[in-house]
Computed example of a mutant assay.
Amino acid sequence: MRTTYDAIIIGGGVIGCSIAYELCKQNKRVLLLEKETIGSKASSAAAGMLGAEMEFETNHPLYTLAKESRDSFSFLSKELFDICGIDIELIQKGIYELAFKEEEAVDLKREAAERHDQGEEVSWLEANNLLIKEPSLSPLVTGALYFAKDAQVSPVKLTRAFYHSAKILGAEIKEHTKVVQLLQSNNKVTGVVTTEETFHADSVIVACGVWSSDIEPSLKMVPVKGECLSFNTKRSLLTGTVKYKNCYLVPKRENRIFVGATSTPHVFDEDVTFSGLFELMEKAKQIVPELSGASFEKAWGGIRPQTLSGIPNIGRHPHKEGLILATGHYRNGILLSAITGKKIADYMESEVHSS
């Protein structure tokens, strides 16, 4: 007898695993298909920042969604740990956006005042107060915009926690299973064809990042390569995440620091380049001079999935019944993973009740 799932999810990154988890909480019959291994691409290349207010201004279309997602991580962290025993390493110590030049300080002070007037917990810290909180920063810093509520997690552990929790709640998950095409009948998607077999479902969810265009060419995903590296330090150098221009330093447990990230659009390779690492190390040393004595741990590259509009696709396909999109999160996949899973699950639940 043919098995028909409530949902087939294509893509085993943080977005796909979050959706599987949320659907299983609603007792849906879920199949997740991943062409390589769970979390092996962009999800494991991320630094894990939950920078809702740092990343988006209040008038940005994603601002409210991003804040809601970030704020849900306190509960989500406990919920996932209770189910699967994995600690996603949520660190709620804020994010500092630094100024080194006087004109940078003027701009950030203005932004602090505007955001404060809009009711955000964002403030300007003069250099003396900043260096009390983060004494390893360069003495040349002139201050920082402090996003007190922004946070960070371990992207690898978050993805694993979604994955294991979904499995515990009944999801069927197949790795090394490549989807080659969608099953379609009269503009309705009814399942997927893989290299091995065919699977049927009421809904198919495309959540495979920049590779989503391979499944649904109308998506026209844009690859944006990013390179990162990490260091081990003899002592803890930072408590909060620190950003200056396009470089950020994210302190992890056990005296590790992630440094990211370059941004190269329209590049599909994950190679780590000399110029990319040199640029990041120069900026990191400017921000925290003591890093020059740190032990190099590793370097890696990943491909961020960007849409042509810059806004992720979350919801039903405009022209194909039974096809749901959850892709194009660009550099905010970790931040938006929690809310994306909930949105897709709620959307599917509302579809059931309206049919």
Rank of each mutant, 00 (worst) to 15 (best):
A127I: 06
A127M: 07
N129T: 03
L130C: 02
L130W: 10
P135I: 04
S136K: 11
S136R: 09
L137W: 01
L137N: 02
P139Y: 12
V141R: 14
V141D: 00
L145D: 04
Y146T: 04
Y146W: 14
Y146S: 09
Y146F: 15
F147E: 02
A148T: 07
Q152T: 02
P155V: 11
P155F: 12
L158I: 09
A161P: 00
F162R: 09
F162Q: 05
Y163Q: 07
Y163V: 07
H164K: 15
H164W: 13
A166F: 12
K167C: 14
I168G: 01
I168S: 04
G170I: 10
A171T: 02
E172N: 12
E172L: 14
K174D: 00
E175I: 13
H176P: 01
H176G: 00
H176M: 12
K178G: 01
V180F: 09
V180W: 09
V180R: 12
Q181M: 14
L182G: 03
L182K: 08
L182E: 00
S185C: 13
N186R: 09
G191S: 06
V192Y: 10
V192W: 12
E197D: 09
T198Q: 10
T198C: 09
T198K: 11
H200S: 13
A201P: 00
I205H: 05
V206Q: 04
A207E: 01
A207C: 06
A207P: 00
A207G: 03
C208V: 06
G209A: 12
W211P: 00
S212P: 07
L219K: 03
K220T: 05
V222R: 14
P223R: 07
P223K: 08
P223V: 10
K225S: 10
G226P: 00
G226I: 13
C228T: 03
C228N: 07
S230K: 04
S230D: 05
S230F: 13
S230A: 10
T233Y: 06
T233A: 02
T233L: 04
L237E: 00
L237K: 04
T239C: 11
T239K: 12
G240N: 05
T241V: 12
V242I: 10
Y244L: 12
N246A: 13
C247L: 10
C247H: 05
Y248D: 01
V250W: 08
V250H: 09
P251F: 07
K252W: 06
K252Q: 05
